[in-house]
Amino acid sequence: MEKRVVFHGKLLPYLLLAPQLLITIVFFYWPAGQAVWQSFLVQDAFGLSTEFVWFENYALLFSKPEYYKSMWTTAVFSTLVAFLSLSIALLFAVQADKHIKFATGYKTLLIWPYAVAPAVAGVLWLFMFQPSLGLVSQAIRALGFQWNPLLDQDHAMALVVMAATWKQISYNFLFFLAGLQAIPKSVIEAAAIDGATPMRRFWTIIFPLLSPTTFFLLVVNVVYVFFDTFGIIDAATQGGPAKGTETMVYKVFSDGRSGGDLGGSAAQSVVLMVIVIALTAIQFRYVERKVQY
């Protein structure tokens, strides 16, 4: 039976919705609208005059090789983070789903990083991997490896990938664990009786049954890497060295805030907006319909 509250009159339901609608309008639609508007404008360096230029900002944006480079950086970054955080989280969840001692403590510890703010996570990893002072850096150097994320782009990328992955594992872990626990135990037992080894059981039964969770997480993770990792990058590398870790969202910030190119930065925001709308559409279309089996 569906439980449904029936309101008399229209005032109360609108009043109850108002706070959420207000937040959405003020913090989402308004800035989004502003970004779209700004992307059609060009301001002079001192902000004294503004000119409406139609799609000039976009044309300029897509003519610059740096923008494609930041796209490539974002692609590398998001692929690495999504793949690593999903696979490590799945490994942890499979282990936590077994009947082990201290399971509750283990789960709690795994969930903690999610509560850490991105900027704090970035600083944390920066400290650990700081070339001259970092504890981990010293250990790596002791092994004879020249570790320097301040100079080497690949090292910097590795650093932000690690930090971003570490933070996202908790979230993925929770969903995978819930997904695993939703698989009826008897199905796994039936597979065991059917002669499937634990490995085979995982790949032929558990993994396919987890596919809706995996797909949902994939979309959520990509959105996370696109937008929420700004804090980590800002704290750990500031997009450097030599823009080696400048993702699209970081470029919005650096072009607009530091570069003073508000129009170009707004155009980039709009591109990102289109991407996230597309991802959400995909998610609604496939995940909500549960097309897995």
Binding site: P184, V187, E189, A190, A191, I205, P208, L209, Q292
Partner: peptide
Amino acid sequence: QNYALYPH
């Protein structure tokens, strides 16, 4: 009891 068929 719940058949435990492989749903996929």
